[in-house]
Nucleic acid binder design. Structure first.
Length: 694
RNA sequence: GCCACCGUAGCUCAGUGGUAGAGCACACCCUUGGUAAGGGUGAGGUCGAGGGUUCAAUCCCCUUCGGUGGCUCCA
């Protein structure tokens, strides 16, 4: 007879098998009404699931006792809503086959195979939503049917959906002993779907939902298999929650770096130049320049040496490094010189032949560099090194070119030409750990200065099943252990992920999310035992013998393009003073104050700050609005009164008020301090102390 | 690369098988205004490009380039 332990420690005893729904009803009518599911010994189940043994039971409701939205409940509402959507679509689009419909962090989707040319479009969303609303209105119970594996597979075979049959086969391979269906209503009468569950008690418990988009996918994510249509939606327990979510999405879209980049004129991508090729316009170039100065200063402190290298190199270089053979398809095609080309044409050489002869080395060519390491390696190799010289740290804002798939290119975050804040450290093996930690501290410094706290750390290890890696296992083991240890020293949680390594070594990556929830790798630190071998690098040790250095590749920003794309979204385009393309704008009240305004402007510029004056033919109100839309950190409004007292009247971005006046000298000193300290001291903060009006 | 959708003025977007419109921005004039839009006038488009259907195409069809959302990929 089941003895049921509740979360508060109390125990309820039943004479006969029962269900979570009954227990909830015994506890109270309110709970019974609010109940969506049960957790039996920590496992999420239907409320109607039979309880016939002792267990710990928790009733899942939309909101947990502390008032927070329950993640399990939300995910079940969404999964159940996916069923309702699938039923609605199958009703409106007969012949549609279902594939897979899980809940997501922000909603759900359902992959479907539509009859030829009969896929819905966004125009059909309203009709589908209306049908869904009807199903929800009917408040039909989710009813579970369990069948044995054989009976279940027989049923699916009769029904004839290869997709569902495959799901079942995989469930079997995964160790399932039964298959379950859920009917939305009465078994055998209403719509049903093969599904592991669990589900909420009835369709009426889906409080609010919306179909959000439609896209395509491949069956099992494999591009050689069926192309499916994926319909995305989201659902919440209540309408206000849905509305809040939709508003958030709307707000996030306004932060999109592609939108802000255009609005604030930070960069331009021109179809005449080419896909994925970013043109840095003057304002964006300022941001980049400031960041590069920032990192260059940090590099000098850490003992790096700056180098410059060309954008192309001989194919032989990349055959040696392994880039050309391993990643040929993701590079721009090789460049072959005129003479050689015309000779090949005369010989009637085909494209296929050309490719073969380029690969074999029979024909030499040049490659736009996909990475900077080979050039830096040749700098290191250009002179002999003593163990006393190491580490040698070569840094370059190095521009690289990669042939990304056209469908992947977009904005600044995925491009075909980008500049890494790259460096390669040539170190003795006993220096690896310390140098790795030095690299990580640089990444931390950058993130801290910019206030970017929302990132995760990933240690990328090799995938044992893949053959895309170069080098010996023993070296990989050492390198992976070094990365693990360095990551531990960071003091932040990290995950280890197999298959995320570079082809020459494991790495530590810093990953952030953009406004639409996509993850991007920014900074990266990689340990490499392999390229030194491929290039036969050496240094002379204390024993007067040749030793092999170890390389560390690192780029704390990752690429300037991607980093600034993410940074634009991080700041919603409102850069701090030190990064802002236009830092201060001087607004004379009228022409009468223009002379003084000009003097203020000149004084600000003399400090090395970027300032302008707007003496346009508009009222101050309008000019304040313009400046606010341009997200300029500080406005200095000056009129006759200010001129007479030699003060400026100040507004700061994001504070919707006049902060009051400051003597001109004081204003200049504070501005300068804020700029030089990169926001370590801010005018706003100081001003708030000095003036109660702030 | 694959699938879907989209491409009209500098920007955001309406619109139609009979060669186009709004708001903002821009230019000029009036206004000299003390903290988030003062008023007027004007200029501005080969309706992404190429081909086809049609008496007639910005609109329909095909191709192509570019963008967006996904999928796949990302040394």
């Amino acid at each position: 007879m089941p003895k049921i332990t509740l979360p508060d420690g109390s125990i309820r005893q039943y004479d006969a098998p029962t269900t979570a729904a009954h227990v909830a009803a015994d506890i109270g009518a309110g709970l019974a009404k609010a109940a969506l599911a049960a957790k039996i010994d920590g496992k999420l189940c239907d409320l109607a699931a039979r309880i016939d043994a002792d267990c710990a039971l928790a009733i899942v409701t939309a909101k947990s006792r502390d008032g927070h939205v329950d993640a399990d409940a939300l995910s079940m509402i969404r999964h159940s809503c996916a069923h309702v959507m699938a039923e609605a679509i199958q009703t409106l689009f007969p012949g549609t086959m279902l594939v897979y419909g899980p809940a997501l962090e922000t909603g759900f989707y359902y992959d479907m195979a539509f009859a030829d040319g009969r896929a819905p479009s966004a125009d059909d969303f309203t009709a589908i939503e209306a049908e869904m609303a009807r199903i929800i209105q009917e408040n039909r119970p989710f009813t579970r049917l369990d069948l044995s594996l054989d009976a279940g597979i027989a049923k699916l075979t009769t029904e004839g959906s290869k997709f569902k049959l495959d799901n079942a086969t995989r469930a079997k391979e995964g160790g399932s002993t039964t298959l379950s269906w859920y009917a939305t209503g009465t078994l055998g009468t209403h719509w049903e779907d093969l599904c592991r569950g669990p589900h909420i008690p009835a369709t009426g418990r889906i409080g609010a939902f919306k179909i959000t988009s439609i896209a395509s996918s491949y069956w099992k994510g494999d591009e050689t298999l069926d192309r499916l249509t994926r319909v995305y939606g989201t659902a919440f327990a209540t309408k206000p929650e849905l509305e809040t979510y939709l508003k958030q999405v709307e707000e996030a879209k306004k932060r999109d770096h592609r939108v802000l980049g255009k609005q604030l004129r930070l960069f331009h991508i021109d179809e005449m130049v080419g896909q994925g090729l970013v043109l840095w316009t003057p304002r964006g170039a300022v941001v980049r320049q400031e960041l590069q100065s920032f990192i260059s200063e940090a590099l000098r402190v850490q003992g790096y040496q700056q180098v410059f290298t060309p954008h192309i190199g001989k194919l032989e270089l990349y055959r040696t490094s392994g880039h050309f053979p391993y990643y040929r398809e993701s590079q721009y095609p090789p460049i072959v010189d005129h003479d050689q080309m015309s000779k090949l044409v005369t010989e009637g050489c085909s494209c296929g032949e050309l490719a073969n002869r380029l690969e074999s080395g029979e024909i030499e060519g040049y490659l736009l560099k996909p990475m900077n390491c080979p050039h830096h390696i040749r700098i290191f190799a250009s002179e002999p090194h003593s163990y006393r010289d190491l580490p040698v740290r070569l840094a370059e804002f190095g521009t690289v070119y990669r042939w990304e798939q056209s469908g992947e290119i977009g904005g600044m975050t995925r491009v075909r030409c980008f500049t890494q804040d790259d460096a390669h450290l040539f170190v003795r093996e006993d220096q690896v750990a310390e140098e790795l930690i030095g690299c990580l501290s640089l990444v931390k410094l950058i993130f801290a200065t910019l206030g970017m706290t929302d990132y995760r750390v990933r240690v990328g290890l090799r995938d044992p099943a893949s053959d895309k890696y170069v080098g010996e296992g023993s070296h990989w083991d050492k390198a992976e252990e070094a990365c693990r240890n360095a990551a531990r020293s960071l003091g932040v949680p990290f995950t280890e992920e197999a298959g995320e390594a570079a082809f020459y070594g494991p790495k530590i990556d810093f990953v952030v999310r953009d406004v639409i929830g996509r993850s991007w790798q920014l900074g990266t630190v990689q340990v490499d035992y392999n390229l030194p071998i491929r290039f036969d690098l050496s240094y002379i040790g204390a024993d007067n013998k040749e030793h092999r250095p170890v390389m560390i590749h690192r780029a704390p920003f990752g690429s300037m393009e991607r980093f600034i794309g993410v940074l634009i979204e991080h700041f919603a385009g409102a850069f701090p003073l030190w990064l802002a393309p236009e830092q201060v704008r001087v607004l004379p009240i009228s022409e009468k104050s223009e002379d003084y305004a000009r003097e203020v402007l000149a004084a600000i510029k003399a400090l090395g700050l970027r300032a302008t004056m707007d003496s346009g033919n508009e009222r101050v109100q309008a000019r304040i609005r313009d400046a606010s839309e341009a997200k300029i950190p500080y406005l200095a409004v000056v009129g006759p009164r200010d001129a007479q007292q030699r003060v400026v009247s100040i507004r700061a971005f994001g504070i919707d008020a006049n902060l009051g006046e400051l003597p001109l000298d004081r204003f200049l000193a504070l501005l300068s301090a804020e700029y030089r300290t990169r926001g370590g001291e801010t005018l706003k903060a100081d001003f708030a102390n000095a003036s109660p009006r702030g």
